[in-house]
Design a binder for these strands. Structure first.
Lengths: 242, 242
DNA sequence: CGTAACGTTGAACTGTCTCAAGATCCGTGG
DNA sequence: CCACGGATCTTGAGACAGTTCAACGTTACG
């Protein structure tokens, strides 16, 4: 395994109006802050750029910051001491990360593709939250939603077979990517088979075989690496064993 | 499967000082409310008693209430359409439940043993939270902790073998039950094998075989139903593949 | 004391993993 | 632009952990 470097990361201070015209604000927790007070948020925001396959932080690191994904894709994962890995989530623009317990991150975070994030120092964010409880309410709502998603993933990992897992994964991705098209659907699939396998609790070989099975069943096409076409989302949903 | 009855539930209004002298307050979110204002919480609190194996609510029900466990044990679970079941958690006194999305509960909740809970109407709790942001902060902290626990469970379900799963489960129970005794540890284990199996993503047979394996390895004893003795918690932790 | 639910054990089966070999993709340098 | 080499993905064959099916033991309760 290639250990990603933390150095492949660049920081920068934002311009004064960073948050006001940010195009992911509507999707991020930042929407809890009104235009009038958005400067207070911008004041504690730094931008972080991550190259593909580089780490944002590792499980156990001091949790000094929290983040919002602005562009790209971030994967979260945990490792067992012998190297077994579980990917616990793929984050898209608007998603919040930085879950900590006892001052330490409880998972590692790595860029799947080149990504840009907003970074907030925890102490300052806590201070801002005390002044603006709407932020706290927003974060509670997001944590609640994440908890519901986590429970769906437990069902997947505990009770679904390989094809159901892959179908569930593709359907969930399609939903999050926001297209509501009923017919064909072109989805970016930037993560490798190993990441998908570690997310679904399978091996790369089983993931590959399941892709082939879905392809032979006429539900998907893999025209080129990094892309998947979905046909009949309703049929895929049925295969996901909701 | 026996469908538990919702009727086996009794409600009662609290006396004025319900919350002030409640012995689980220190462990529950209620600790975020100071003595001076605890009456406001007591005013919106109702007590619910549940008999063994009866349901508190089902996934999909209108989420009109949230709850705190006062005594007993509650299990949370989700069902697939064909009956496969995943238990997503066992709740002990002090734990909060009532996770909802879009106005509906996202899981079912049933009493493992006779239990008592505090019930809060959601609208009133939301109102109280607006007045007392400390409650919101407390709930955010709890949700965050639950999220960390959920991720550990994903690692368990996605990457651990049967014995590691059972060892992890027993160690986590021991930690939550609070005894820090290093030697022998007597744990109540009130849930049946089927519940444990559905929590660990296994079958009852595999759970039973894993109990036997741990017993033969000298790490546990099963003196009577509903109880487990743990020997060498450190050894069990090693077997849990943290 | 009888009976039904629950738990354990055994034996055969199967879905997924492991190990191994090709095929394909992609960046690099000639 | 093409040839090379490494990484990634796919496919195959055999192994194995956990499931399924079945029998037996144990516990709890009317």
């Amino acid at each position: 395994m290639i250990m990603p470097s933390r150095a492949a990361m660049s920081h920068s201070q934002p311009s004064a109006s960073t948050c006001l015209h940010c195009d992911t604000r509507a999707k991020a927790f930042c929407r809890a802050v009104a235009d009038e007070s958005i400067e207070a948020l911008a004041a504690i925001t730094t931008t972080v750029d991550l190259r593909e396959h580089t780490a944002l932080f590792y499980e156990g690191d001091d949790a000094r910051h929290a983040f919002t994904v602005k562009s790209g894709m971030i994967k979260l994962f945990k490792l067992l001491s012998d190297g077994r890995r579980q990917v616990t989530g793929f984050l898209l623009p608007g998603d919040f990360l930085g879950l900590a317990f006892g001052g330490h991150y409880v998972y590692s975070a790595e860029a799947v593709v080149a990504s840009r994030l907003c970074r907030f120092e925890r102490g300052r964010l806590d201070t801002l939250m005390s002044v603006r409880p709407a932020i706290e309410k927003e974060l509670l709502g997001r944590a609640t939603h994440e908890l519901a998603v986590a429970q769906d993933q437990m069902v997947l990992l505990g009770r679904k077979n390989a094809i159901e897992r892959l179908a569930s994964f593709l359907v969930a991705l399609a939903r999050r990517s926001g297209r509501g098209a009923p017919g064909e659907l072109r989805l970016p699939l930037p993560m490798g088979r190993a990441d998908i396998a570690d997310y679904l609790g399978l091996t790369v070989e089983t993931v590959s075989r399941s892709f082939t099975a879905l392809r032979k069943a006429g539900r998907i096409e893999l025209p080129s690496s990094g892309v998947v076409l979905l046909y009949r989302l309703d049929e895929l949903e049925a295969m996901a064993a909701a």
